[in-house]
Amino acid sequence: MIRFLKYTWFQVGSFGLLLALVPLVVTNRYYLNVMIFIGIHTLLVVGLNLLMGYAGQISLGHAAFFGLGAYTSGVLTATYKLSPWPAMVIAVVLTVAVALLVGVPALKLTGYYLAMATLGFGIIVYICFKELVWLTGGPSGLVGIPKLSIGTVVLDEPRTYYYLVWAITLGAIVLSLNIVDSRVGRALRAIHDSEPAARASGIYTARLKIWVFVVSAIYASVAGSLYAHFITFISPSSFDFMFSIKLVTMVVVGGMASIWGAVFGAATLTVLPEVLAVFHDFDIVIFGLILMVVMIFMPQGLTRGALDLWEKYRLQRDVAGGSLSGG
């Protein structure tokens, strides 16, 4: 067990070191911005993965929590001139309250019915962002969100913000790795594998599902606040149904129930649209095509799928090599 712990720390440590070195090599603002988005998406996906990958509960409305974080931070700081850090805390508290309000009735449902309930919730929140013009600025968005600062240092350079985002995201990854490999983490996985057996083993599954829903909502809320203070302008379209779907896809593409898979999924699906942008209007066609192909042929996600393909290739090569030497 001690060795395993060290192993995890080794992974986290080397990943952190790698991340710390990136801005020393990459000075291009555009690339740094993409890296910041990857960090924010990773935070979202790691949280969603606790809910979906580990506890096996679908959420098709996670963009709503991301949006709640972003809009609460945005409105409190831009309109009411509150300083960003307390605003972020208030955003988390508000998100927790909403997550409880929705989660308590919704998590009594399973499978498609839970998917539908979270979908409906997500769209209602999106419509509120759009229609509560006096509060959110409506479809044209909310402007004038200040940059974050630590003490007197304003984090207005991509490089400094990069470090902030990834420090928080890395922290969230560590917390998630700890949760997954604990009594709570086992209980979550138990719910996914067999809910009756989990209950018979003394797990209060109903409550645990609500807690993991709340935890994943907190991750999303913090990600939302970081997003708002980064681009300083938010509009409802960033928090629509398609974004919820994109988050689910990041979880699945990376591979369910794998924290590092979540990082990979977030990175892949953040970079992909940027790459596809060269195709202009073709980009969404290609994006849709990729979603379908990956899910049809590698439903366990790209990481697992690629490993399977590699295994297959090696087997075939070995067989071919064997017959060659035999003949």
Binding site: T249, D281, I284, V285, I290, M292
Partner: peptide, 12 residues
């Protein structure tokens, strides 16, 4: 996700 992918594809 497959049917959502199809929907994005057709829309595109």
């Amino acid at each position: 996700i497959i049917t959502v992918g199809a929907s994005i594809f057709l829309r595109g």
